[in-house]
Every structure is written in structure tokens, then in C-alpha cells.
Design a protein around this nucleic acid. Structure first.
Lengths: 212, 212
DNA sequence: ACCCGTAAGATAGTGGTACTATCCAAGGTG
DNA sequence: CACCTTGGATAGTACCACTATCTTACGGGT
């Protein structure tokens, strides 16, 4: 498969493929002469993964690179790979800042351990959650961390199911790819379903009249 | 309150405030002379909202503007406002494309009506969900729409709670702001909690050794 | 053997987005 | 009354994900 065929098979334009090659997202093809290289089905698959991380996961190119490196490194186990993916999805962790923000973070930490969750101290999601709590308070919401309790219960149930699904899924390469794809894609799906459900309940309660 | 005080009170740099004024995100202050304008607490609050939509909601400036316009328009009811916010959060709806994508969308539509959800045909979340389904299939996941069922149940429960919480909350301006903030912030929180829960269950199952 | 289209690889340019910097005239301030 | 800030306008920056162009060298069909 030459580059033009790879492009046709994947739907990704040639210049973009070259860009990914330069950026180290895609392994070079097997060189067949100075001006010829052979690409495989694995390249098509990798391109799909790249687009999924970029689009569904809204990751930046450099974060995609980090995830792919971890994915290709046999030394990296499931758990660490998941952490890498979460980190890449999480956006940049802003510094603590004000004392109120530090308070929020401390409360989140207590909340997490009260749930019995065993989670790394540096997990970016801690900060995301703390920022959410802080923001609610800024807006005058009388917010105890407990407002997150129903969400936590739900998250726990879904995550338990997801992680057990991942377990035994053929060779490592396939399994870890499935883990990353699943994390990203089901996250997008969950968010979309929540919005649909909100719209439904909103329509029930407030009546759906005009649109836009 | 002059612009420098507004900046200090909100933490937003003066040039950025001027930028938001130009972009129509922030109403101009009351002019007190040619070179002086007076800003109020409402401006501080509005700046907070803007930052929340941009950061937690990852919206673009023009989408923030759209949401704020709806927020300030007394003609727009709760339900439509929520739709506007969802639309702004949803990202650009890509065209249907391949037949497989159209199939996925049709299945999503059936799924949604089977759930008994009464949702607008143009809801961008439909497309998001269809893309998620399509992506899973591209990766060889044996995916029936039903894989989303547990997520849908959960989303339904959370949304019901959220919408009923919104109901009676003082004057319209405050209530609709709370609705938008809630939608955005709890979405971020839910996602963060799912990641934390995943990490916990992953640690249980695969053991948490090294990090990064 | 020839030759023209295409590949690979390198370098430079584009378009979008969210700011940020500079400038200026006018007005309020110590 | 000199100076410093403000509002308002205009221009510039930084980052990002591509995209276009150019060069050199095949290599496949005749």
C-alpha cells in the first residue's frame, strides 16, 4: 500500500498523513527504494485511532503522541496506560491558586477517599472536580462536595462494568487499544446521552415550543 | 467600579475585558464622561460566566455569545435556552457522510424513541452519539446501540434530578444562569468522576505500580 | 532505454482562535 | 497644572492543526 492508497483507505489527506509522520504519530512505512514506502493495514488502523483521539477525545497532537507512545510500549501496563490517557484527556492542570481553590481540592480529596477510591494523588481529574466545586461556589451555589454523590455512585457503577469488560481481550496490542478507544468514545457517548436526557426532561417540565 | 477594579475583582486582565467588550460578550459599562465608564457587580458575575463557558465548557467565543444572547432574551424560555447551550457545547455537527454513518444515526434515532425520550430531531447530541457508535464499529467492536443502554439509564436518572432541581429558583435571570452553569459544570464533574472511578477499578484489577 | 507521472521528504505558508500590545486623545486627580 | 489612567481603536502575537509547494529520484509502461 502506497501513501495515496493509505490516504484513500483512511480518508485522511496525504499532506495530513505526512504531517502525522513528521509529528511521530504514525510509524514510517517500510522503505522500498528511496522514493517508495509500503504501508499496511496497521497504518490504517492507527490513523483511525489518531482521528478518534483528536476528534472524539479533543486531544492535542502532542498528547496523542504521548498516548500512542505508551500504547506501543510493552513495558507499560493497563493501569498506567489508562492514567496516561486520562492525563492527555484532562487538559492542563492549572495551579492551585487561591486558598478557596485549595480548600476545594482538599474537600475533593476527602470525598474521594470517603468513597473508598484508590486514586493517584496527581490524577488531573481531582483538579477538574475541585475546579467544578469552586466554580459552583463562585456562583453562590450552596455547594457541599456531597452534591457530587449521585454522580459518583453512577460513575462507580459504569467504571466497574467498563474495567471488567476490558480484562481479557486477546493480545495486548488489541486490548490496550480497545481500552483507550473505549475510554474516549464512551465518555463522549455518556455526555451526549446526558444532554439528550436533559432535553427530554426539560421538554416534559417546561414544554417544548419554538426552537432556536 | 472602573475597568481596572473590574479586572482586579474578576481576575481577568484588562485587555481581555476589552476584547470581550468588543466581541459583545460583555455589556459596556455606564458611561460617566467620555473617558470613564462605570462597571457593576453584574459585570463581575458575567465575566465569571464567560470564563466558565470558555474553560469548563470549552466553548468558542462565538458560541458563548450565542448562549449569552439567549440568556439575556426574556422571550427565550428554559427549554430553548438549554437547547442553545447544548448546541454550543456540542461542537460542529459534521455532515452525515457515508451510508454507515447514516445507519448509525438511524439506529440512534430508534434507540432514543425506544427510550421514550422526546428530543428535537436536530439535537447535536444525536449526531455525537451516532459518531460514537460508528467509531466503535470501525474498531471492530461488535456494537449494537444497546451498549449504550446502561449509560442511557444513568443519564436519565441524573437528568431527571437536574431538571427538577432547576425548576423554581427565584427570578428568571438567576434561574437560567444557574441552569446553564449547572449543565456545564456538572458535565465536567461527571466526566472527572468517571475517570477517577475508572482509575480506582483499574487499580483494583490490574494493580497500580509505577506512574507516568 | 526512455520519459512522464508519482512518491518521498523537506520547507514554508495558511486559517482559525483567543487573546495581548500599542497608540491616542481626553479627562479626571493629586 | 502636570501627570496618570481610561476608553476606544488598531494592530500584532502565540499556538495549533493542518496544507501547499518544491525538489529529487525513482519506476512502470511502451
Amino acid at each position: 500500500m502506497r501513501i495515496s492508497e493509505l490516504s484513500a483507505a483512511s480518508g485522511v489527506p496525504i499532506p495530513t498523513i505526512k504531517f502525522y509522520l513528521r509529528e511521530g504519530l504514525l510509524a514510517p512505512g517500510v522503505k522500498a527504494g528511496q522514493t517508495q514506502a509500503e504501508y499496511s493495514e496497521a497504518h490504517v488502523r492507527r490513523l483511525r485511532l489518531i482521528r478518534t483521539l483528536l476528534e472524539a477525545g479533543r486531544m492535542r497532537v502532542r498528547d496523542v503522541r504521548t498516548v500512542l507512545r505508551a500504547l506501543d510500549d510493552d513495558e507499560v501496563g493497563f493501569h498506567d496506560l489508562l492514567g496516561t490517557a486520562h492525563h492527555a484527556l484532562g487538559g492542563s492542570a492549572t495551579a492551585p491558586g487561591t486558598p478557596e481553590e485549595r480548600d476545594a481540592l482538599a474537600e475533593v480529596d476527602r470525598f474521594v477517599s470517603r468513597l473508598g477510591w484508590n486514586v493517584s494523588d496527581e490524577a488531573p481529574a481531582r483538579h477538574t472536580l475541585a475546579r467544578a466545586l469552586f466554580t459552583l461556589r463562585e456562583f453562590g451555589y450552596p455547594a457541599d462536595v456531597r452534591v457530587f454523590e449521585p454522580y459518583a455512585r453512577v460513575a462507580d457503577r459504569l467504571a466497574a462494568r467498563e474495567i471488567s469488560t476490558i480484562s481479557g481481550r486477546g493480545p495486548r496490542a488489541d486490548a490496550v487499544e480497545a481500552a483507550v478507544v473505549g475510554t474516549v468514545v464512551f465518555e463522549a457517548a455518556l455526555v451526549a446521552l446526558r444532554r439528550l436526557a436533559q432535553e427530554h426532561h426539560s421538554a416534559r417540565r417546561f414544554g417544548g415550543r419554538r426552537r432556536r
